[in-house]
């Protein structure tokens, strides 16, 4: 009797879970149609391919709050982390509905850097309809607060003299930190092939190891380094941006210190599967453009140390294509992809 009851219970629960999973993926087979039914008419699911609480997640949540209010329909953020952002990305691009109700919010790490570093992904940039770039932040070059370098030039000299002693933290061979390091070393004429990459698992892993002097350098987003810098454990030698960061007005830019040609930066943007109708793209473009000027939204961005950086769908697509091309070239040239 007991066994029967057990199996009955199990199959009951299983069937419930199957029904649940069936509901979550509403695959209406609408292709490219251009008649606007008054989008959005129902709830939109936004997938973030990284863990809750990270930079991408924070931007996505600030966005969903604004859009829910603006459109009067709920915009729900769902985190599907894994495989450097590939898991959640694949889910939307390959399995998501093409009607604007399945949307992706990513950072550069899950797009250009991912495409450049992996040749055998189950999806490609052709599967992706970019909607709008929303926010961005420049990269900060940080060393331990106790490190003997007062500015980036002292580090430049040291690296050129001690190429085989130099280590840097990055989240993988083709993570954004690696590209940041390469561009800096190329710019100052140092030898990247001698530099040793210590692969770390996100900034929470990398930064304390730099602060403790175990790794020489980390190249991470300004928002990520701000806590340990304010705590006096890290020193920002330079920020790769045309202007000084409003969050660290005393820190000079890389360019001010004579290190030119660094254009790598972090960005966060929205996209959908290819084949999503034009009216959806238009709606996102106009609303996001309005959002990045909204004072309440800007205040939220300030609290996470991120700046608005709007781009419409076409410009965004072009910039990603160029960026991917650049990164792929760099990756090939430096032997990052095997």
């Amino acid at each position: 009797m007991k066994k029967k009851a057990l199996f009955g219970l199990l199959s009951g629960v299983l069937s419930v879970s199957i029904v649940l999973s069936g509901c979550s993926s509403t695959n209406s087979a609408s292709g490219k149609q251009n008649k606007d039914p008054g989008y959005p008419t129902k709830q939109i699911e936004v997938i973030v391919p990284f863990a809750a609480g990270g930079g991408t997640d924070l931007t996505a949540r600030a966005m969903s709050e604004y859009l829910s209010e603006e459109w009067g329909k709920s915009v729900v953020v769902v985190n599907k982390p894994g495989a450097g952002g590939a898991t959640g990305t694949q889910e939307v691009l390959k399995q998501g509905s093409k009607d604007g109700y399945s949307v992706l919010v990513q950072s550069v790490s899950a797009v250009s850097a991912l495409y450049a570093g992996n040749t055998n992904l189950p999806f490609s940039v052709e599967d992706q309809q970019f909607l709008a770039k929303m926010t961005g932040e420049p990269l900060a070059y940080v060393v331990s607060a106790d490190a003997p370098f007062k500015n980036i030039n002292e580090l430049n000299e040291w690296v050129k003299k001690n190429p085989d002693k130099f280590t840097f933290a990055s989240n993988g061979p083709t993570a954004i930190g690696t590209f940041g390091t390469i561009q800096w070393m190329d710019s100052i004429g140092a030898d990247f092939s001698k530099a040793r990459l210590v692969a770390t698992n996100g900034s929470g892993d990398a930064l304390p190891k730099v602060a403790g002097g175990h790794i020489t350098l980390a190249v991470q987003g300004v928002s990520e380094v701000s806590n340990l810098t304010k705590a006096g454990k890290l020193k920002i030698l330079g920020i790769a941006a045309p202007e000084r960061s409003p969050f660290f007005p005393d820190v000079p830019t890389m360019e001010e210190q004579g290190v030119k040609d660094i254009d790598v930066s972090l960005w966060y943007g929205a996209s959908a599967p290819a084949g999503t109708p034009d009216y959806v793209v238009k709606k996102w473009e106009t609303t996001i453009n309005k959002m990045v000027k909204d004072p309440k939204f800007l205040e939220k961005l300030d609290s996470i140390n991120v700046r608005p950086d709007y781009m419409n769908a076409d410009d965004f697509t072009k910039s990603v294509e160029e960026e991917t091309k650049d990164y792929t070239e760099i990756a090939k040239e430096k032997g990052l992809v095997k």
Binding site: D164, T167, R196, V198, A199, T200, N201, D205, K209, H214
Partner: peptide
């Protein structure tokens, strides 16, 4: 990870 990181540090 710490094993691989250590060995990258020490060549």
């Amino acid at each position: 990870q710490s094993f691989v990181q250590s060995l990258s540090m020490s060549k």
